[in-house]
Nucleic acid binder design. Sequence first.
DNA 1: CTTTGGATCGTCT
DNA 2: GACGATCCAAAGG
Length: 215
Amino acid sequence: MILVAYPSGSPDVSCRVSFEERPTVVAPWLLNKVLVRTLPDGTTLSGRIVEVEAYGGSDDPASHAYRGPTKRNRTMFGPGGCLYVYFTYGMHHCANVVCCPEGVAGAVLLRAVAPIRGLEEMFTRRPGARRPTDLASGPGRLCQAMGVDRDLDGADLLTAGSGLALEDDGTPPPGMPGNSPRVGVGAAHQIAWRWWVPGDRNVSKKGLTRSAGGA
DNA sequence: CTTTGGATCGTCT
DNA sequence: GACGATCCAAAGG
């Protein structure tokens, strides 16, 4: 039982217990945190998280974990603060931050980041991208730009040396984030489990729709 | 600008 | 054997 998740009222990205919260709590909190990728050759790529979605476990029909653990989704049942990467549509990878206590499935899909470091490398990895907003404005694009694939599944985002890390540069999450139903989820189970940074151009196209955020 | 359909393969039934 | 937590190019307004 978690008694105190956010002792100071301001979640600490380096604190494991923060990731034992539910995905609907962790998701909006991740907005404006920085995702840092260290490539095998030492190159650093980074971007500010501007769009996320929450996925649950046995309570969420839209979640990979809805019908229990499988070889593919087992990372979702592991400890919070780790990365869950899956491959879909025969060509795209998507990255998630695992949350909830170990044994309980839950994750936050990283849908978009605003590139900060390594733009040149990202353009190389994403031929066809013209503008910086083409680099990581979507879950598949984000993974392609930052070199994230299934090899990083299970990586610990709170430990240096795992290749991918979460950092807090002091920018707080938006006080009133954009909020809408999730993208690509059947209308039958639509609830507003998607959040974004209002006004950020890197938010994926399908989402500058109505919200509580405004510009 | 919006809409539409094809690509492509690991995973689970 | 069917179907994606998607992306992109092409075509139409």
